[in-house]
Design a protein around this nucleic acid. Structure first.
Lengths: 199, 199
DNA sequence: CGATCGATGTCAGTTGCTGTCATCACCATA
DNA sequence: TATGGTGATGACAGCAACTGACATCGATCG
């Protein structure tokens, strides 16, 4: 089989460039074809033209290959919170950030669905996804604290924001759901406010 | 070393009774003594007077020994939500359930702290804890739906409830914090309402 | 008394993951 | 141009988590 090499690098060395990208693509393909558990790291490496050992040099474990892009999303959200005007309430700064984050999803809905299906089909992958979301919440709480919001308000706003994100993402990705990210976020946030107001 | 046998069973058979309990205790001890990663399942089994294979017959994996009691907590919370009067708003039914759940912690604060320390010290264990909490949220959402609450309100109330639980638990278990569970829950819930009201 | 059952032991095998050392193109510098 | 350092990879051995298959043997039931 042939491997599509993304981001061909002119300063190529002894090996084919973009080892990490090849590993990622091979893993996504195999996880999709036969499932996460049924795929061995040796198989991923082979399809990428590398060795198992090299896989573990690029990704901490077999799951991480699906999540390492998360770091960029986190940065995006944190910056969005930091950039919100001072007058904006914590929960609304979070909401604004979530809307901005949609830029990373909007237009790649199908890709998101595939990845989501792989993750949803496996408990270990769901665990990893959860801890990434908690890390995100933690980073958002930090960003709020930099805006002068004290705990536990900062933590609560961040955690609640992630809860909204989860609910909104599920809705957005669902077959029958709304496909406009911003709108889904705004609706979910409105529901949140209704619920916590005791209605 | 000797092993304390809890719940001695008069109908003992060929082996020492309460294999599961012995495994659990041995695991807790070893995880505490030398850490989760530094403990092998073979060591746990040996201390419990059993074999590695038997450990995996009682617990799905090395982590699960710390979490299998969670099922009872989930039942307790679900029942509490179900038993709340019809007139109570979703979020308040959740809050009431969280207060009730304190009965499982109150009076065992030290034990909770030990277990919490073990979990906090290891990323894999934190992952497992998170997925258990999500399962809890899911069960609570189901209980709310049985009360006639539609989604996404049910899911949101449940997820938010879990966020409050997390924040409250951290506060309750902290050295300087309040030690009365009910009070911590009520305070945290009040904070939540303030935050989501946009303050 | 014999058959079945349930909890455990035994053992071999797969796989995720790590440590260690070798390789070799590239690069800087003498 | 020679030399030595560097960084990404390969090769290989090994540990530990987990699984499947089969054996064991007291208890229990008919």
């Amino acid at each position: 089989m042939s491997v599509t090499v993304i981001n061909y690098d002119l300063s190529m060395g002894r090996w084919e460039p973009n080892a990490r990208g090849r590993l990622e693509q091979a893993a996504l393909e195999l996880y999709g074809e036969r499932g996460f558990e049924q795929t061995t790291v040796a198989e991923i490496a082979k399809r990428a033209g590398l060795t198992e050992r090299t896989f573990f040099r690029h990704f901490a474990d077999k799951r991480e290959v699906l999540f390492w892009g998360q770091g960029a999303l986190q940065e995006l959200l944190v910056h969005a919170v930091a950039d919100a005007p001072d007058s904006v309430a914590p929960i609304d700064a979070i909401a604004a950030a979530l809307e901005v984050a949609g830029a990373r999803f909007q237009g790649r809905r199908e890709h998101s669905q595939q990845r989501h299906a792989i993750i949803a089909a496996n408990a270990e992958l769901r665990e990893r996804e959860l801890i990434k979301l908690v890390s995100l919440a933690s980073a958002l709480a930090g960003a709020l604290r930099l805006r002068g919001i004290a705990d536990p308000a900062a933590s609560l706003a961040a955690e609640v924001g992630i809860a909204v994100f989860r609910v909104a993402f599920d809705r957005w990705i669902g077959e029958t759901g709304q496909t406009d990210w911003s709108q889904v976020i705004r609706e979910s946030m409105d529901e949140l406010k209704a619920v916590t107001a005791g209605r």
